[in-house]
């Protein structure tokens, strides 16, 4: 399977780069912790755990945005993307490799954020963790494609939140539903549906984003 080997090589490249330069992940970790502290002071003293859970999802989406806006920074600065496009492999492998590395970053950031949330605000249960995992899949899939789009525009980092947030609204609906309601199954199912649908669209259309 050369396709999977390409994807693995691309994802490993990103992770190795991050391991050496350490310029995205520490920023994401610090950002998500600071956001949680800000939320503690933003919430009125007697507000419910449900409000805090909603704000956790805001923190997750904005942390993801922080990571995504850096996702194609190295490629753009070094002009790597043109080289990758010319390489004799399927273009969607570039998307899949990048989405995997984004997913790892997001997962690591939440490995810190969720215990911190449990410690500072409210307990975390299984359906919430499942919701976060599914939401991460969707965010990584859609976010990577949109980050590649934003990297091709003049506005760059400024554009990414604008094009990403409307598409992230269903993720937030599903995620918040999975974490606060009595009956999380249908929200979890909805998140899975979102992930599958948008992953297919992204996989099929990435080629057009990086070529003319």
């Amino acid at each position: 399977m050369t396709y999977l080997a390409d994807v693995g090589a691309l994802a490993r490249k990103d992770l190795l780069l991050e391991l050496r330069a350490r310029d995205t992940l520490p920023a994401m970790l610090l950002f998500v912790l600071s956001t949680l502290v800000v939320f503690h002071f933003a919430l009125p003293g007697n507000s419910s755990e449900r409000a805090a859970t909603g704000l956790l999802w805001v923190a997750i989406v904005f942390t993801a945005l922080l990571g995504l806006s850096r996702a194609f920074a190295a490629e753009r600065e070094q002009g790597v993307l043109d080289g990758l496009v010319l390489a004799p492999s399927d273009r969607s492998a570039i998307w899949l490799g990048k989405a995997l590395s984004v997913l790892v970053f997001l997962g690591l950031a939440e490995l810190v954020a969720l215990p911190a949330f449990a410690l500072l605000f409210a307990p975390v249960d299984g359906s919430m963790i499942l919701g976060v995992v599914l939401a991460d899949l969707g965010i990584a899939a859609v976010g990577t494609l949109l980050a590649a789009m934003a990297a091709a525009s003049r506005a760059r980092e400024l554009l990414l939140p604008l094009i990403f947030l409307p598409l992230a609204i269903p993720i937030v609906v599903g995620g918040v539903g999975a974490s606060v309601t009595e009956n999380p199954a249908r929200y979890v199912g909805f998140l899975a549906l979102y992930d599958a649908l948008f992953a297919i669209i992204c996989w099929a259309s990435f080629e057009y984003v990086v070529t003319e």
Partner: peptide
């Protein structure tokens, strides 16, 4: 993406 977002949003909002 917009064409896909319409049914997904309808579902999300109904939920």
């Amino acid at each position: 993406f917009g064409v896909a977002l319409v049914p997904v949003s309808i579902l999300a909002i109904r939920l």
